[in-house]
Design a protein around this nucleic acid. Structure first.
Lengths: 218, 218, 218, 218
DNA sequence: GATGAATGAGCTTTCATTCAT
DNA sequence: AATGAATGAAAGCTCATTCAT
């Protein structure tokens, strides 16, 4: 066990352990005592860092989403052109969700809880990630339109649709027992969408490849 | 108190009231007493019809999904060609979800619960609707491919993707506070997909209209 | 299932079935529904014959004790001399308890309940059997004393002691998991007591036999 | 509220209060809240020390029986010869039961419960005391036989009979409403038994005294 | 700061009893 | 007379949170 030096490091440590317990057992079934035991601290200590169990839940989600956003940012910045930035977003999502397969149900629980609690911070945190992704998607879509790859499209609506689709695929994946490869499904989706949006110019370059992917499925 | 004639009618009546209470308060926050009071019956009476709260929850979900499936079946049967059958599915989903806007969060709770409970019937019931929709979608996609409207595509994968997308849009709609019109989003989605899958032949007929929709967004 | 003709026969039938259910499951764990099901009648019907579950419990005990008393009466009447009447009582107890081994725990429950309930009939019914046995025992003891077999002894106290001992042996037998033969234990007891009470005259006749039994145990 | 210093002292305190509530109201009628209130602690606190109500019941019984065994041990050790050790056991039982007259019905409830519960610890605890007493009785009986006071007797069987008789007298005392003096009854019993087992030698010394007691009863 | 003993509100579920049919 | 659907009081147990040390 690493020596915890300061307050925020200990806070992060608790979040880490809480994430594991919540993931394994679910929010409602996880007891504060379970988390304390897992973190090898006293039950009361958690309350030195988080006012309520709910607040801890929010912190766990926040921590996850922050890593996700950081991952996306990093990948997108590393990519050079708009097309590969789009790929970077998709890859980030795939990687993030795939590597957290066990935690996936907790995301659903978080969303469900967000819609019920009086605490507005839950929905706000969700919106925050969505805004981040939508803004990013919107900008890139516009660039692709402007560059003549994509046909004219309401970039805002499209970005919203895209992130919705992402969550939808994720949902299908989780509820279906993760029986198909997530990355293939995301690629497949992008081929469908891509084909739809490509301009004649873009089509000339990419159509063949995309149609092949459609035929193969996932 | 309405005169309840037979057992199954009373059962349905309890499901109805439970659905309302669950929808309003959420599964975990709803107490059996709340449901009993709302149904104007004794708390013990519920247990004459459902062994546990969880079983009642399942019954509520089952009742919703059965209506949804019935609606889809009806609409699809009424439609004459494959293209309008696809429209019928989409319209059914839009109508179903729109008319149950208040109940929507409960679907999330159900999904979340299904992933946690030991009772396998929850996931089974979810799978059942998904299978129904996927089989339907798969058949229609294949018909559209065979008829030359759609380019060659793995019908199974595409159907899975489509229902995933539907749930995704629904999710975005719910989590985003239902700030956009659900029907427009579904139509938009179909335009994007449609454009991607259309063959040159289909494109000749429909491209103009679909591109217009893309430009407008939702 | 025999055709139940009159009220008291049906009442007896319910008692019979209740006795079986109570014996198997215990008073507290037995549900009125279990009894109704076992008797193949409606739950409400029981209440036509017994006001409460407690009253039914009392009826079961009363029925058992009445049979026991009848058995004792019959056996004692059949015996000719005092000494064999004493044997008859002992044999009746052994037979009664042995043949009801499974029901034995219920007797304990009844006694325990009798000491707690406000309903005085429980203790009264217990007293009634005890009185019957004590009176019987007292009379016989006095006869044996008068006949010169037994030394002078307070017949009342001795009778009380004897029936207490009987229950005690029964208790040890039940709580010990019925690991020793009940009849042997009763005989052994009688040998011990007998030897103690015998007059020199009685001793001349019986001592040898009794001492042999002491040596053998049970 | 008394200052409770350590865990086991608090545990003992709860047992003490539970014993009082159980004794007064009976096991089934006693509510955990009653016990908590009586002990001036919160309901939840009890569950920090005992997993279930049943476990608490067992602890109460265990505590009683342990004191009883300790009392017997102390008294027996203090006695010098076998004959007075036998008296010591009898006196301990009398003292123990007499001083716990109010609690006596609870013993019956405990026995009844032990025969019904799935938890084997109940019967085991009962056996434990019985073994202790039987072993003690067996040893002393053998000593008395060896010393020539008692006639040859199966010491094991006799010891079993004796403790059964003790419980039987106790039972008669409790069920009979404690209308006779317990100590006299025990002494009376011992006179009967004693006379039966005495050898001619023992008889020479004690017969007169014992016969007198028989005549007096209790 | 860290702890964990103490708390009690609150929940699901049971089941004896009632009573309309 | 017979029934069983309906009832609701009741109880054991849980667990997030507090707070004295």
């Amino acid at each position: 066990m690493p020596l915890i030096v300061d307050r925020s490091a200990k806070r992060a440590d608790i979040i880490q352990h809480a994430a594991e317990v919540f993931s394994r057992t679910g929010y409602h079934e996880s007891k504060m005592q379970d988390i304390a035991t897992h973190a090898e601290i006293g039950k009361g200590t958690i309350y030195e860092y988080f006012r309520t169990k709910e607040e801890l839940f929010l912190a766990v989600y926040d921590s996850w989403m922050t890593s996700f956003e950081d991952l996306v940012k990093m990948r997108v910045e590393a990519a050079t052109d708009a097309m590969s930035k789009v790929d970077a977003i998709r890859d980030s999502a795939v990687e993030f969700y795939s590597s957290r397969a066990e935690q996936a149900p907790l995301l659903l629980e978080f969303w469900a809880h967000a819609l019920r609690t009086d605490n507005p911070k839950f929905l706000e945190r969700i919106q925050s990630t969505r805004s981040f992704l939508n803004d990013l998607g919107k900008g890139l879509t516009q660039q692709l339109v402007d560059a003549g790859w994509f046909t004219a499209v309401d970039a805002e609506a499209f970005a919203l649709l895209e992130s919705g689709m992402s969550d939808g695929i994720f949902l299908a994946w989780v509820l279906g027992g993760r029986t198909f490869p997530l990355d293939k499904a995301y690629t497949f989706r992008q081929s469908v969408i891509g084909l739809g949006l490509l301009t004649p110019m873009g089509r000339t370059v990419l159509e063949e490849r995309l149609r092949l992917k459609l035929k193969k499925g996932f």
